[in-house]
Simulated scan of single mutants.
Amino acid sequence: MVRLTRAQQQERTRAAVLVAARREFAEYGYGEAKIDRIAERAELTRGAVYSNFAGKRALYLAVLADAVERARASAEPPPESPDSVARALGAFARVWLERLPLAGDTPGSGHLQLRSLSGVLDTEPARAALAELVCFEALLLALALEPDRAVRTRTVRLAGLALTLLHGAAALAENAPGVGDPFDLARAAEHLAAITLIDDAGPPHLPFVAPARTADDRWAAPRGLYDEINGRPVNLGDDGVVVVLGVGRLSAAGEAVRSARLRDEVTLVVVTSDPSETGRLARLRIVDLVACLRRVFAAGELPAPRVVFDDGGTVATAMGRDRVDDATEVAIRVRDGLIVARADGRGAGHAVAVAPSAPHKAVDTVDPPSATY
């Protein structure tokens, strides 16, 4: 008889709970699902379920996150990306709309297939986090639509419109399965590219953001982190900008990305004070989007900024930040293994992105920012 280690036993228990929970949610939906029945399905005690998941909401988010992780792992990139923004939007919409339930699906299974959050996010922090995540998703989609240039605010707004169209179709399909032709919706997404949108001046607070503080500190870059977009290990010692953002500040990612220099390696580190729920929500939404992007865009044309989940807050700790929460925004510029600039608070990513790339260097005229607002 093979004796399992504690970690192996916990992983087996967690997997059994996820399988049982998926069946429970598919049959009863989120609202009517019961932890007791999930424990019974898994042939475990109620306590065993709660030892792995904080509650029903955390468990539901874990079920969805597990599904999108599998989808990402199986996503096959095309040999080449679409040759226009319009075609890319249409291709993305077709992939995304595969989740729409059919008329014969049960409500519970349809909700799971849609990654539905209806009735799940019933707290203000969770709803605020979702709003920030939608902004972040629009940025990532925009970066894929314009891989060869600094992303424009117009393209981010266009990506946001496309996501609004798709999520609106999902909300309708949740209550009226079979309504709405996916092919018509995909064509509508293509036509969004022709909408006239302006490149606005950007967030009004940026001119008032305090400059980054000059530094000359050795950077002990944490290891064991992975880029959620391409799946490769992340070396935070690379020259560039590292921005740690709480889930409640993810919309600030665009400020850092658009202000960074063309040769900068930009790493966006996502943190939260509640990994079991808010953290799983962030993982669910970001990984789901990445799974779709991987099926539309060639591997070399996925969004360039690296996205890292840091549930333990190790990156912020290495920067000297004792604790993180959903409002965290702290950033550094790294050059030759040194931290050469630091900033924290609102606009920190932007401040570090426009900071000189070497200690005590007043002006960097050779390597200008990649874009301005």
Rank of each mutant, 00 (worst) to 15 (best):
T5H: 00
V17K: 11
L18F: 05
V19K: 06
A20N: 07
A21L: 01
A33E: 08
R41G: 03
L44C: 04
L44Y: 00
L44F: 07
T45V: 09
R46A: 08
G47K: 11
A54G: 01
A71W: 13
A75I: 13
S81E: 09
P82D: 14
A86T: 06
L100M: 11
P107E: 14
S109D: 11
G110N: 01
Q113I: 12
A126G: 05
A131S: 07
A131T: 06
V134T: 10
V134P: 01
F136P: 00
L139C: 03
P147L: 09
V156Q: 01
L158E: 10
T164G: 05
H167D: 04
A169G: 01
A169L: 06
A171H: 05
A176V: 12
G180I: 07
L185N: 04
L197C: 09
A201K: 06
P203M: 02
P204S: 13
L206R: 13
P207V: 03
V209N: 00
A212W: 05
A221P: 00
G224D: 15
L225K: 05
N235T: 11
D238H: 05
G240F: 13
V242I: 15
V243L: 15
V244E: 09
S259C: 15
S259E: 14
A260N: 13
L262G: 11
L262K: 08
R263C: 12
V271F: 07
S273I: 00
D274M: 00
D274C: 00
E277M: 05
L281N: 03
R283W: 06
R285Y: 01
D288G: 10
V290L: 03
A291Q: 08
L293R: 03
R294A: 13
V296M: 12
V296P: 08
E301I: 10
A304I: 09
A304C: 05
D310N: 02
R323L: 07
V324I: 09
E329D: 07
V330D: 03
I332A: 15
V334T: 08
L338D: 01
R342E: 04
G345T: 04
P356L: 06
A362T: 08
A362H: 06
D367H: 04
D367V: 05
P369V: 08
S370W: 14
